[in-house]
Computed example of a mutant assay.
Amino acid sequence: MPPVEEETVVFRSRFNRILAAVFWVVCAAALVAIGLTYAYRPTGSVAGLAVGSVLIGVAVLVVLWRPQLTVSDDAIVVRNVLSTIVVPWNALIHVDTKYALTLITPQRKVAVWCAPAPGATAALRASRAQGTQARAWTAASDLRPGDLAGTESGRAAFLVRSRWNTLREQGRIELGTAGDQRVQVQPHVASIAGLVAGVVAVALVTILL
Rank of each mutant, 00 (worst) to 15 (best):
M1R: 10
E5F: 06
E7Q: 07
T8V: 11
V9H: 08
V9E: 13
F15K: 13
F15Y: 12
F15V: 13
R17S: 12
A20C: 10
V22E: 08
V22Y: 11
V25G: 04
V26N: 00
C27I: 14
A28V: 13
A29K: 04
V32I: 15
A33S: 09
I34A: 14
I34M: 13
G35A: 07
L36F: 13
T37I: 12
A39H: 12
T43I: 11
S45I: 15
V46C: 10
V46T: 14
A47I: 09
L49D: 01
G52Q: 03
S53R: 00
V54M: 15
I56R: 00
V60R: 03
L61T: 11
V62F: 14
L64M: 14
L64K: 04
L69K: 08
T70L: 07
V71L: 09
S72F: 06
D73H: 01
D74W: 03
D74H: 07
I76Y: 00
V78G: 04
I85M: 06
V86L: 13
V86R: 13
W89K: 10
W89M: 09
W89A: 02
W89C: 04
A91I: 03
A91S: 10
V95T: 07
V95C: 02
D96W: 03
T97V: 12
T97W: 04
L101P: 00
T102K: 03
L103N: 00
I104K: 04
T105Y: 03
T105N: 05
T105M: 01
P106G: 11
W113E: 11
W113F: 08
A117L: 11
A120Y: 02
T121H: 05
L124M: 12
R125I: 07
R125Y: 04
A126T: 09
S127V: 06
R128E: 06
G131D: 13
T132K: 12
Q133M: 12
R135P: 05
S141H: 04
L143W: 08
L143A: 10
L143D: 05
D147G: 02
A149V: 11
A149N: 08
E152I: 07
A156R: 09
F158R: 15
F158A: 15
S162N: 13
R163M: 01
R163L: 04
R163T: 01
W164K: 03
R168P: 00
R168H: 09
R172T: 01
E174P: 02
L175K: 04
Q181F: 06
V183I: 14
V185I: 14
V189R: 14
A190K: 11
A190T: 15
A190L: 15
A190S: 12
G194T: 10
V196W: 06
A197S: 15
A197W: 11
V199W: 00
V199M: 12
A203K: 05
L204H: 09
T206M: 08
L209F: 14
